[in-house]
């Protein structure tokens, strides 16, 4: 059997912040296409840093990150925007534009497919407007199309954020503690949606979580970080509770 090239691979990746804080230390691992990967670790372990290096929201200090078998560190301008276009990102605080409508928020996920002047004038094609409705249907919020974003509950806002990401037609979704400000029931809704996108659309999903229980429920594989280092990396079948607790030991 021929091994398919991984969709993302980290090679000796280090990240030191300007103030000297070590964000990531000698990260080496591959993520195969279609995996549902959960990253766990204490606060400050470097989970957000790791995620943001994949779409170059953070720059690394040394090493190499490859996405779809291309080194991403040289991307600039247009090529960087094209990288980001195929990587959706979900945030803890949803990051919707509160004063804009749900429709406008969702359509904003599509702007990288248009020349700037069309984006500014809001000249989206009829197909994309249709797609926006469909994206909202997938998160069961189509009826909120014209509602202002700040009139939605947290869980609904996160679902709109997922719909926005779907407009990118992403191959990868990065989710940074997507459920940290949600109640248990809404948490399940949001995690189920992510799982479905992973299974039905084959999108590679990488989620940062604080909850080990949730990680074990949804992940194909769990990576544990501590002080910027990978201290745990197992497929879900091999994960045991006592093992996982190692990640949470004091440094």
């Amino acid at each position: 059997m021929v091994q398919e090239t991984p969709i993302i691979s980290f090679k000796n990746v280090n990240k030191v912040y300007d103030n000297g804080t070590v964000g990531l230390k000698d990260i080496n691992f591959d993520i195969p296409r279609g995996q549902f990967l959960v990253v766990v670790g204490l606060s400050g372990a470097g989970k957000s840093t790791l995620l943001r290096t994949i779409n170059r929201m953070h720059e690394i200090t040394s090493g190499e990150i490859r996405v779809e078998d291309e080194a991403i560190d040289r991307y600039k301008g247009r090529s960087l925007r094209f990288l980001r276009r195929k990587i959706g990102m979900i945030f803890q605080n949803f990051n919707l534009v509160n004063r804009s409508s749900v429709e406008r928020n969702v359509l904003s996920g599509r702007v990288s497919y248009y020349p700037t002047w069309k984006s500014l004038l809001g000249l989206f094609s009829a197909t994309d407007k249709q797609n926006a409705v469909q994206a909202l249907q997938r998160v069961s919020l189509a009826e909120k199309l014209y509602t202002r974003a700040d009139e939605l509950s947290g869980g609904q806002q996160q679902r709109v954020a997922i719909a926005r990401t779907l407009m990118q037609n992403p191959k990868i979704i990065l989710a940074d503690e997507p459920i940290a400000s949600l109640d248990p029931l809404t948490t399940k809704t949001v995690m189920d949606i992510l799982k479905r996108l992973n299974q039905e659309d084959g999108i590679t999903v990488i989620v940062n979580l604080h909850s080990v229980a949730l990680a074990r429920e949804y992940a194909d594989r769990i990576v544990g970080l501590r002080a910027g280092e990978v201290v745990y990396d197992e497929p879900i079948a091999a994960v045991t509770a006592t093992d996982l607790n190692r990640v949470y030991q004091e440094v």
């Binding site: 960087l80 990288l83 990102m89 534009v97 702007v111 990401t165 990118q168």
Partner: peptide
């Protein structure tokens, strides 16, 4: 709030588009 700007950047929007979509609605 810088959150929406981060989101628009992560979508692959250029500077002007980020300002138009994420900054202007907040300050209008």
């Amino acid at each position: 709030d810088m959150g929406p700007l981060e989101a628009l950047e992560s979508v692959g929007a250029g500077k002007l588009t980020v300002i138009w979509y994420a900054v202007l609605p907040q300050i209008l």
